[in-house]
Write a protein that binds this DNA or RNA. Structure first.
Lengths: 145, 145
DNA sequence: GTACTTGCAAATGCTTTGCATATCC
DNA sequence: GGATATGCAAAGCATTTGCAAGTAC
């Protein structure tokens, strides 16, 4: 769990895709480029809108298909941040979790290692390698309690 | 976190609903009855099918509206168990979490208190009352690793 | 050249909504 | 009696799919 993903670059990401026999298309590059350029956690729709600015021909199916590809390749995480749809984020920057207040909707980041001990315990007791990366933790903040 | 929800019965559930000004209709009773009678975590569709056996007139909208009502009333939990839609479960039986293997899809239950320590830490450090109830924890089981 | 990708449009599937009717209290 | 809840059908919306055309390698 504590093992950190190495810093991801365009090159390393492309390398991973090539190794899996995927072709490198302009659409995939644009999508990767945007994902790597922002610190936000983007939804398919946001990504579509952004990529469209530079590449007006992009289609929604390509965005969905590419996000699925990148997720299965282990390059991005897919998280439910309460937007009603998935949010995506490069895996190397997913070294944190989110506290999301059910009252005011505000969001805080907490460090990756919060779950290290639980991960260790679950591994020890159940031989289960829990994927505790980039969690969305709902609850109530001090003000809203 | 460690505080256990009291055992839920038809009577106590109805009591909660009444206190909120909700009316007690046969549909709501049937839905509650099924939820309380099974140990499964049911989806809206499964619930619809089951209730339909005893009350053929039930409609999908009623099921959805009732599940939303029961969730907002704090009587049931809504969890993503990887079925592609929400699963529902009486809150008093939600005293556990699920390990779900991304390889074989198998599911194991682990005790509620697994996250007690993390909950305490998050409260202490961020004054955030994390709602760590009935989590779905994805990962890989021993065989699939 | 060939298998992989894309764009388009249509289909899908879950969920929500408007509204007239029924019903709980 | 009056506010609530229901059923139905239609709408909504995010996502997926089939397929012909395009393209990476």
């Amino acid at each position: 769990m504590a093992d950190q993903a190495p810093k991801m670059t365009m090159e390393s990401a492309v390398e991973v895709l090539k190794r899996q026999g995927c072709r490198i298309t302009p659409q995939r590059i644009m999508i990767l480029e945007y994902l790597l350029s922002t610190d936000d956690h983007v939804t398919a729709e946001e990504l579509y809108e952004q990529v469209k600015l530079m590449y007006p021909h992009i289609s929604f199916s390509t965005v969905y298909r590419t996000l699925e590809l990148l997720r299965d390749a282990g390059l991005i995480t897919q998280t439910d941040l309460g937007k009603g749809t998935w949010s995506y984020h490069p895996i190397d920057r997913a070294d944190h979790h989110h506290l999301i207040c059910l009252g005011c909707g505000e969001m805080w980041e907490i460090p990756q290692d919060t779950f290290d001990e639980v991960h260790r315990q679950i591994m020890e007791r159940y031989s289960f390698d829990a994927l505790m990366v980039h969690y969305a933790i709902y609850g109530r903040c001090e003000r809203c309690r």
